[in-house]
Amino acid sequence: MTARLLEDPQERASARFWRAEALDVLEAGPDRAPSVWEEAGIDGVGGAEWAHIALPAQRRIASEVMQELLRRAGVSSFPIEQVQVEPAPHDAEGLAWRTRVRYAVDEEGRVGMRGWRSHEVRPVGDDPLSAQAIRDLRLGDWIAPEGTEAIDAVAPSAGPASVVLIGRDLDPNSVEIPDSWGDADVAVRTSRGLVTLRGDGTVHERVGERLFTVSATGFWQSHRRAADLLTEVVQASLGAPAGAAPGTCTAESGSSPPSPHSRWVPRAPWSRSRATAAPPSSQRRTSRICRRSPRPPRTSRTGSGHAAAGSTPWCSIRPAAVRVSS
């Protein structure tokens, strides 16, 4: 293909590598497909670099990248070829999965996303990777009030969507909520803190039977199925009986004792009622609860066979047991 260098090759003559953007395809590879997101093409928004690659090929390539990373990390405890990126169940199109989207806002208040390796804000158009509840906000058609630097949109698995306008000096009184936001919660985050205009600054996430309350600006896995799927996969891998509450783990089944590098994952030490009643700052609170979990008891270090689900307040996850899903 013909590609345009991002950097000036004279200035960057001594650089170990250059970056370039493909402009013109002289000989199309077999994986090329009509882009699912035209606005993510040349000079378009970043973060969807494979929008022009057929979905099965995206997964194959992602598997290659993952395997190469593990190889370089010197992982030898399991067959690296077995690491395959798979679709989440029922994910036929690979679209509408982002439940956490940060939009950028330009000086005129136009809402978009930044370009690849660029600070420029560019229009998102159909925004096909974002969850429907986020697309329905139609932020690309909206002009943000002066002082808005970014917008966090959240499409949680339970309850209304959330819009948080971010700007150091943004005046919360200057925000007029458009009809297109429906019943979405709205808040403004300035240098002085969070001001809620509608809702309490939290969103709800359902994972299995549990309902979590997390901060609208806090971390949560972006993919709409990630939390559910991770729970299911870990439970299945650890041999927990189907239907056991998320967070209930058994000891690992391998004959080798957990290595010092194993990650200790607590059996949820909080009851369901406590999870649902978590206060607004529960994103942080959840972390604190996890840290407070008991250290693995020494007697369990022999790791022989399964412990009964629920009787062991800890478990370890071996990387071989975790599959990555797109």
Binding site: T2, G29, R32
Partner: peptide, 23 residues
């Protein structure tokens, strides 16, 4: 030419040097 190429003229305004490469 692919649909991508139609966007090329506007982007080359940025002035980066063009190379022919194989990925």
């Amino acid at each position: 030419m692919t649909p991508d190429a139609e966007h090329a003229p506007s982007s080359s305004a940025l002035g980066g040097r063009l190379l022919t490469l194989t990925a």
